[in-house]
Design a protein around this nucleic acid. Structure first.
Lengths: 142, 142
DNA sequence: TATTGTTATACTCTATAACTATA
DNA sequence: TATAGTTATAGAGTATAACAATA
């Protein structure tokens, strides 16, 4: 039983797509400001934190940006002493990006702050489970 | 009955928060490339399209950016002939931002393309309804 | 030859501060 | 005085193309 027009619903979800971008931007910006970072840098820090260490190429892949963009981002993070480039153990072309102790400390603060001021705190447990399921489904591009 | 650790679930949702940013960025970038725009410009066009016309200040508010940022964005869109600044009917300080016919045409193409290649197309109707409800709840900052 | 990463370049996005015109 | 918008400035994010070193 379809009570809502399908095309209208899809269009409405696209409103959310755009709003989501703005909202997520804003949430990350708040997080970032707290830590003295930009939202993109916070994103990068989070990735490095979750996956521990990785090559520059892998980071670019996760952030879905060009390799050259990753290079300049890493440059800025390195200049701030948050990450460091170390040689790859077997591939001498590649470089492994690591969080420094300062980077780890900042990451910890970001995680703590995120957990405290979560935009998902409004939802109850069941809702969060459902949201996870739906997001997984919608975001899966494969 | 809680089968999943709550803290872990919240952390996982934050992974999605970051991933979502990247994903939504990417979706908008694809959309934009199609139309020869940046993702932010696509966003602006969409807002102008949905709300018809509005002041520069209102646009900045919707995009959650500074007024000066909106100014330069409008500059670029105007230079491309997609929007135009017209005097506000009663407040002579304010300017109303309008889509030009070219802007409208581009907006139509973007909407059509979005509907066709929707990231939400993967979800069935019921799932989309549930997603809408959850997003509304989670995104409501008031 | 193909891949990893960097550099040079050019644009867009972004906020802050100082400003103009109007309310 | 306060508000709407602009300008000047500076830094960050972004991709393209050309390049070096290595696989």
């Amino acid at each position: 039983m379809v009570l809502v027009d399908d095309r209208q619903l899809t269009e409405e979800l696209h409103d959310y797509l755009f709003a989501l971008r703005t909202q997520v931007h804003a949430e990350l910006k708040d997080l970032a400001r707290e830590a003295g970072l930009t939202d993109t840098q916070t994103d990068a820090l989070w990735r490095l934190s979750r996956g521990r260490e990785m090559t520059a190429g892998r980071l670019a892949e996760l952030l879905q940006c060009d390799a050259s963009t990753a290079t300049s981002m890493i440059d800025r993070l390195e200049k701030r002493g948050l990450v460091r480039r170390v040689p790859h153990p077997v591939d001498r072309r590649a470089k492994v990006i690591q969080l420094t102790p300062e980077g780890c400390a900042l990451r910890d603060r970001v995680i703590e702050h995120t957990t405290e001021h979560s935009p998902f705190a409004r939802l109850d447990h069941e809702s969060r489970l459902r949201l996870r399921t739906l997001l997984r489904e919608a975001m899966d591009r494969s």
